[in-house]
Design a protein around this nucleic acid. Structure first.
Ligand SMILES: [Mn+2]
Ligand SMILES: [Mn+2]
Ligand SMILES: [Zn+2]
Ligand SMILES: [Zn+2]
Lengths: 133, 133
DNA sequence: TTATTAAAGGAAAATATTTTTCCTTTAGCA
DNA sequence: TGCTAAAGGAAAAATATTTTCCTTTAATAA
């Protein structure tokens, strides 16, 4: 099934409208993998010349609330947003800033103090990507 | 040796002055473990009634540049700052928002695509802390 | 199709956050 | 003690994000 149809369904399930602007934002995140506010805004302006930055922010928040996208906080740079998919970890290149998906660790052997209940873990690896070596 | 003396030495090594405001900020981060801008500002105002928020920001940036403190990006909340010490991981309580130090994993079995060079990894565990269960 | 209507978009204003400027004060040193 | 560059304070500027208010439109159903 086509991605855009899936997104439309997800939106409908949350009683959100499938507007062209919203679908375009999802398409951009889909295409880029990880995008920050400004990347989304610059990219969407190519198709929607008069789109408001406020619309981008409002949709980001709406999509976050709906659990359709999530925010990835990256060390030393602006937050990236991505479509929610299977759980995974991230690798950020300290040369080019690109964020890559990597498999999550099979097991995370961290001993928590007694009484602490973990629910989930996120791992961010910093290094140099293939393109930048 | 006293912590404040150590901090003064670290500052001197970076040719930074040991001002009362700067030492107080380090003392606050030392005491709280992890503090955000506003916590630092509210706390330091108790001793330095007329301190400027700009001074807090300027010192945070100076101390970051000097490698004396580091920024911890926490999911869904404002960045926390802490004194640089041994490498460790973090646990954030989704109930109270408190950030705790936890030991870093002994081994992180993440398979990176070939050509990717990892330099360091940070792990953030989200869950419920002892006080909040 | 067409009419209805609540949700969403756009523009501008408001608010929040962070940095810079500019002048005054002071830590560090001779 | 004095000197001086670094740092502090206040305000302004720059940047980032949210809200307001009015217009447009997606979704629904007749
Ligand atoms: Mn990802
Ligand atoms: Mn810590
Ligand atoms: Zn790279
Ligand atoms: Zn807690």
């Amino acid at each position: 099934m086509e991605k855009s149809v899936q997104y439309a369904d997800m939106l409908k399930q949350k009683d959100l409208k499938s507007t062209p602007q919203r679908m375009a934002m999802l398409g951009i995140m889909e295409a880029k993998g990880h995008a920050d506010i400004d990347e989304i805004y610059q990219e969407i302006k190519k198709d929607f010349v008069s789109i408001s930055l406020a619309t981008v922010y409002k949709n980001i928040n709406t999509l976050l609330d709906a659990g359709i996208i999530e925010e990835i906080k990256v060390p030393q740079k602006k937050s990236k947003f991505e479509i929610v998919k299977h759980k995974h970890s991230h690798f950020v290149c300290e040369k080019c800033g690109e964020v890559y998906d990597v498999q999550k660790p099979k097991k995370l052997d961290i001993e928590l103090p007694e009484g602490f209940e973990p629910r989930e873990a996120s791992v961010m690896i910093v290094g140099v990507c293939k393109k930048c070596r």
